[in-house]
Structures are given as C-alpha cells and as structure tokens.
C-alpha cells in the first residue's frame, strides 16, 4: 500500500514533464492550411500575417519560418525574408530548399553579405551544424540511456565486449555533450541580425550625432556583438563594425 502510494506520487511528479499540455492541435493545423492557401492565392500580405500570428502564439517550427520567408520574398521584402530563413535554418539545418532559397534571398539584397563562416572551434564540430539543438539533445538522451544500460550490464556480466561498448559509448557521449556546448556558445555569442530598414547608417557610437562609418541596406547580414540602450553594435568583419538603432535590425 505504502509502495503504491509512492509510485503514484512519482508518476504524478514526473509524467507532466514528458506529456505536453494538450494543445488545440486541430486549430493550429487549420491556421497553417489557411496561411498556405492564402499564399497560393497570392494574397501574400494576409498569408504573412497568418504565419506571423501563429509564431506570435508560440508556434516554433522551421517550416513555418520557411514559408513565412517565402511569402516575404514574394512581397519583395528581402529583409524579413532573410531573417526568417535564418530563423528556419536553426530549426531545419539540413533542408536543401531552405539553403537554396536563403542564397537566392541574399542575392536579391543590395549588399549581398553571406552568413559568417564558423569559427575555429565550430569548424572542429562541423557535423553538428547539420543538426538543430533539439535533435542533438535527443541524440544525447538516447546515447546516455544506452550508455547507462551498458554500464549496468557490464557491472553484472563483466565481459570484454561490454567493456569496449561502454568505453566507446562514453567517448561518443562526451563528444556529443561537447558539441552541444559549442553549439550553445555559438548561438549565444554570434547572434546574427538582419537589416530590416531600406537603408541604415552604421555609426561610430551609439548616438544619433555619432559619425556615420558606412551604410547597410535591407537584408544585409550582420553579427551583433554588443548592446547599449536602444543601439546594437554590429560587425561585418574584423575591420568594419559600428552601431545601429536596435529597431532597424531583426534578430
């Protein structure tokens, strides 16, 4: 009796972590279908509004961002298009259509700035660029589960093959955790931003009366390196950097 009570308490505490609250899925999918239909009917402004509304409600899906970006391309708004392709790329990094459309969108911009290449540390973990963070975490969870099962079996049976499997799994698991760490660091350090205004003046400081160093145009990709009040410090390369108003770029 006592044991069954403890088990019920355990389930009561743990199960909600695994089971998402039942969302109104059918309504969500209806909204997606409606937004897609509006796109096909070439009512792009309404279609974009419908996609944006879904995202505002908390939907987080790479294909949603991709469709929204396609809609913006059709509307001729390269800035929001590039921004949403970049957002989609974080969630569906292996999608070939997305890569091609992002390239197309960048070619439509005036500055034609390609996304920055990964750093030295990231280059060592290039394989992880093909996975989004969620996939990497799930992979780590599966590998972690297999590792502990193997460890338990090895403790019970003590065979050399289980020992080899244990060591290999441990190595893979550590490598995977390190890859997740590098990905997390990259996503927090090099925050990509896209110029949304038709033209933005990059200043030497975070003030209107600061000197204009150079100009960027809609759709230009920059890396945000600092923040001060309503200004963001953006960088194009090692030499060209400056400050832009926060509301002129999307992140």
């Amino acid at each position: 009796m006592k044991h069954s009570n403890s088990f019920s308490l355990f389930l009561f505490c743990v199960l909600p972590l695994f089971i998402s609250p039942p969302a109104d899925a059918s309504k969500y999918f209806e909204e997606v279908v409606r937004a897609n239909d509006l796109h096909f009917e070439k009512r792009y402004a309404q279609s974009a509004k419908a996609y944006e509304s879904l995202i505002d409600k908390g939907a987080r899906n790479g294909y949603l961002y991709y469709n929204l970006a396609n809609t913006y391309i059709r509307m001729g708004k390269t800035g929001p298009a590039v921004l949403n392709y970049i957002r989609a790329r974080k969630l569906i990094p292996r999608d070939e259509n997305l890569a091609a459309n992002l390239k197309f969108a960048i070619q439509q911009t005036r500055d034609k700035i390609e996304p920055p290449s990964p750093g030295t540390l990231s280059a060592l973990f290039l394989w992880s660029n093909d996975f989004n963070l969620r996939e990497l975490i799930y992979l780590a969870m599966i590998l972690n589960f297999i590792f502990w099962i193997t460890l338990a079996l090895w403790m019970y049976f003590r065979s050399s093959s289980l020992q080899l499997a244990r060591n290999v799994l441990l190595g893979l698991l550590l490598f995977l955790f390190f890859s997740i760490g590098v990905k997390l660091k990259n996503e927090s350090d090099s925050k990509l931003a896209v110029v949304l205004d038709e033209r933005v003046e990059v200043k030497s400081g975070g003030a209107e009366d600061a000197i204009t160093l150079f100009q960027l145009h809609e759709g230009a990709l920059v890396t945000v390196t600092d923040k001060y009040e309503d200004w963001l410090e953006v960088r194009l390369n090692d030499e060209q950097k400056g400050w832009v108003p926060k509301n002129s770029v999307g992140t």
């Binding site: 897609n36 987080r60 294909y63 459309n101």
Partner: peptide, 20 residues
C-alpha cells in the same frame, strides 16, 4: 531563377516548442 515553393505537408508543421 526562383525560390523553391512553400511546404504544405502538415506532418512537418508539428509544433516542437514545448518538449525541450
């Protein structure tokens, strides 16, 4: 030159915002 079209398969649009 043109972009690839939008996705319409509903199974791709599963909202994955809550399970991580």
């Amino acid at each position: 030159k043109d972009i690839f079209p939008i996705y319409t398969e509903l199974n791709k649009f599963q909202n994955d915002g809550n399970d991580s």
